[in-house]
Simulated assay, not measured.
Amino acid sequence: MSLRDKVFSSITTSLGVLYFVPKGLNLADPRQNHKAALQSNFDQAKNPGLDGYEHRCFSYIQTLQNMEFESSHQRSTHAYSVIQETKEEYEKLESLIESLLKTRINRSISGDATLFGKPLAETGLSDGQKVLIQLAVALHAQKGRLDDTVFLMDEPENHLHPSALIEFLNTLEEVATNA
């Protein structure tokens, strides 16, 4: 019998269960990937579950930022609806990261996504910040799949300051209203 079956055996509705164990703190540098690998990591981030985000996190941010940048360029050939949808998705990610990390995503002249004025992999994030950015990306990437979901997080307080944990839980409640 699976953990889900043991915990939720009396509930008749279909529940999703997302596990998050913040052990993967070596966040992969998106500049080391070619465009196809970035896109693959972006697509994989949308799959249910919170495993492996240390490999996908920065690639997801970089890819979404690239999509927003390309669609909003004055020579873009994208339909207006695609431009608006991409812009809204990017703004939602910006908002999540800003609420959890208290900083905004920016873009360098060379096209790298930046935090704190540095390319993502060079920001020197604390362990707690690495956990929060992975969770922000996971929440954003899986937003359509969060209804009727139970989040199981193994000791998130190990890496988070108590006030950051409270802010994260408040943000989670705002983003995942039916979870």
Rank of each mutant, 00 (worst) to 15 (best):
S14C: 07
A121N: 10
S59N: 08
T12Y: 10
Q39M: 14
G49W: 02
P48C: 08
V21M: 15
G52K: 08
K118Q: 12
K143C: 12
G124P: 02
T13C: 12
E89N: 11
L146P: 01
L146R: 04
P48H: 12
T77W: 15
Y19A: 07
H78D: 11
Y19F: 13
D51W: 12
A164L: 07
H161Y: 10
S81E: 14
H78K: 15
A141H: 03
V131G: 05
L152S: 02
C57S: 10
T123W: 04
D43I: 09
K23W: 13
P30H: 02
R4S: 14
P48Y: 15
N106L: 08
M153V: 12
L172P: 01
T77D: 14
G49A: 06
G16N: 11
L64N: 00
Y90T: 10
A79Y: 13
A176H: 03
R31E: 09
E70W: 03
G117W: 07
F151D: 00
R56T: 04
H55P: 03
S110C: 01
L125T: 00
E155D: 09
A121W: 14
A36S: 15
E167F: 02
L18R: 15
I97M: 05
L160I: 08
R4I: 01
H55R: 12
D43F: 03
H159P: 00
D154Q: 08
R107H: 04
R145P: 08
E174H: 09
H161W: 12
A176L: 00
S59R: 08
G128N: 03
Q142L: 07
D29G: 02
L64G: 02
V131Q: 07
E157P: 00
I97K: 01
G144R: 03
D112T: 10
H34F: 09
L125G: 02
L132Y: 00
E174D: 14
L25H: 01
E173T: 09
H140A: 01
S14R: 15
K87Y: 09
F20K: 06
E88G: 09
A45L: 04
L165P: 04
H34D: 10
N158K: 06
I105E: 04
A36H: 13
A138H: 05
S40C: 10
L125M: 09
T177L: 06
M67H: 15
E98T: 06
G24L: 01
G52S: 03
Y53N: 07
G52N: 04
S14H: 13
L15E: 02
D154V: 04
